[in-house]
Every structure is written in structure tokens, then in C-alpha cells.
Write a protein that binds this DNA or RNA. Structure first.
Length: 115
DNA sequence: CTCGTGACGGCGA
DNA sequence: ATCGCCGCCACGA
């Protein structure tokens, strides 16, 4: 697997991971950070997100509580609309642990194996 | 060059 | 169970 050279660019890694994120799933900053090899760098993911290219599905990144981050431009309304556009809509993530909407590290692993 | 801050989250008290 | 502190990488001043 191509895991060892993670530090080539945490940023790049995040971008790569986001491109692997299925359109019908959501993930958390923390999980994404963990996938990139830095379980405690969730914050960075958010920071990177805000800087990153807009061709990436940032709206499908949610915080641990299941809602979009506080500082998203336009507020949660925009986020919600984008999620609905992806046929996800509003979900009580917090309650049912994202149900099947959550994209977890093991899903990434599974994804890579299937490739 | 250094310093501070940030779309967050884990862990200790 | 809640509250608060620390950390992680990148980027702007």
C-alpha cells in the first residue's frame, strides 16, 4: 500500500482521501485525519479544507456532532442544500452514529483493496 | 526567519 | 456525564 510516505504532504493526502469519498457518504474531520495518519490533526483537515480547491466535496465533511462546522461560508443552510443535492439531506448523525452514511477508515481500506 | 491561528477532536480531571 | 487543555500541519502576517 502507499501509506509510508504520508508526510510527503498531509494536505495532498487529505485531498486524495476526499476524492475517494463516495458521493453518498459523509465523513468527519477526525476520521479523515486518522486516514491520513494523524488522528489528532482533525483541526488541520478543517484548515486545509477552507484553503483547498472547490472541486472537492467539502460539504460532505462534518464534525463529530454530525453537523457542518461553525465557520462555513453561508452557514449550515448552504451545507444542508449541498448535502440534499447529493441526496443525503439532513440526518441525525449524532443519534444513529451516521447510520450507513459515515465513511470510515476501514471503508477506505476496503476501497483500496477493491481497486 | 518566527509567531499565531485555524471548517476539530482526543483525552485527562 | 461535562469542562478544559493540548496537539497536529499549513499558511498568512
Amino acid at each position: 500500500m502507499d501509506e509510508p510516505h504520508i508526510q510527503k504532504g498531509f494536505r495532498e493526502e487529505i485531498y486524495k482521501l476526499m476524492r475517494l469519498l463516495p458521493n453518498d457518504k459523509v465523513t468527519t474531520y477526525g476520521d479523515l485525519a486518522a486516514m491520513a495518519g494523524q488522528p489528532r490533526a482533525a483541526r488541520i483537515v478543517g484548515g486545509i479544507a477552507h484553503q483547498g480547491p472547490d472541486d472537492l466535496p467539502w460539504h460532505r465533511l462534518v464534525n463529530r456532532e454530525g453537523g457542518l462546522a461553525i465557520g462555513f461560508p453561508g452557514g449550515q443552510d448552504v451545507q444542508l442544500q449541498l448535502l440534499q443535492a447529493d441526496d443525503i439531506g439532513c440526518v441525525d448523525y449524532k443519534i444513529d452514529n451516521f447510520g450507513e452514511r459515515r465513511w470510515r477508515p476501514q471503508d477506505l481500506d476496503l476501497n483500496l483493496r477493491l481497486l
